[in-house]
């Protein structure tokens, strides 16, 4: 069966797998953003915590993705077979770039700006909301963008633990020794990554002061 025929015959499954893939990535990114950005902000104020947290995030990043999925299966609550485990693993991978960039962005705000903000009587909450976040939003979003691209790629491996997504085609294609089937997973995944990159790039541009 040629690639094009496969695409046409399987368009419904390709569509639903793409959707599955997107939902997986979106859920993981949501978790990673909700944890990563506040944690990154906290790290600026707690230098002694910084080494440990960034170190841990770095270590997680070095674990091969297939291994991380495997490690998580026996873990209670978070683990098991399926999408929940995959979401946890993807969120862990997405954490480092978000954490790192949030920290770098906020720590990089001009000290003179902070000193005048404090000296003129802004509260720390006002400084965060009106000064630190607006001035580092571009850097933070760049981290989110990198994390999203990483997630879309790694999510293809989530099929190995029964989480679905476009990886299903890739694993099936490998087993069938069929390039068409592999491409039916790989090409939509690549397009997804490019699309998300462009989209977040636009958001970044729009929010940059």
């Amino acid at each position: 069966m040629s690639f094009w025929n496969f695409l046409i015959n399987y368009r419904a499954e390709i569509f639903s797998r793409t959707l599955e893939h997107l939902i997986l990535v979106a859920a993981a990114m949501l978790v990673a953003v909700l944890i990563g950005i506040p944690l990154g902000i906290a790290l600026v104020r707690r230098p002694n915590l910084r080494r440990w947290v960034l170190g841990a995030a770095n270590v997680i990043q070095t674990i091969p993705s297939l291994a991380l999925f495997g490690f998580l299966i026996p873990v209670p609550f978070l683990g098991g077979i399926g999408a929940r485990t995959a979401t946890v693993a993807l969120a862990l991978y997405a954490l480092l770039p978000i954490l790192q960039n949030t920290y770098t962005g906020i720590a990089g705000v001009d000290p003179a700006v902070l000193e005048s903000a404090r000296g003129m009587g802004m509260t720390s909450r006002q400084i965060l909301r009106d000064v630190q976040l607006p001035l580092s939003i571009a850097v933070i979003l760049a981290g989110v963008r990198v994390a999203a691209i990483i997630c879309i790629g790694i999510a293809t491996i989530a099929a190995a633990i029964g989480a679905g997504g476009l990886g299903v085609f890739i694993f099936r294609g490998v087993a069938m020794v069929s390039n068409s089937v592999i491409l039916a997973g790989a090409i939509p995944a690549a397009l997804l990554a490019i699309g998300v990159d462009i989209l977040l790039g636009l958001v970044e541009k729009k929010l940059t002061p």
Binding site: V113, S116, G119, G121, P209
Partner: peptide, 18 residues
Amino acid sequence: IQLRRRIGYVIQDVGLFP
């Protein structure tokens, strides 16, 4: 906070919000 709002503060690097 109230104290600082009663005291104008000018520094060498100005520190305007960019």
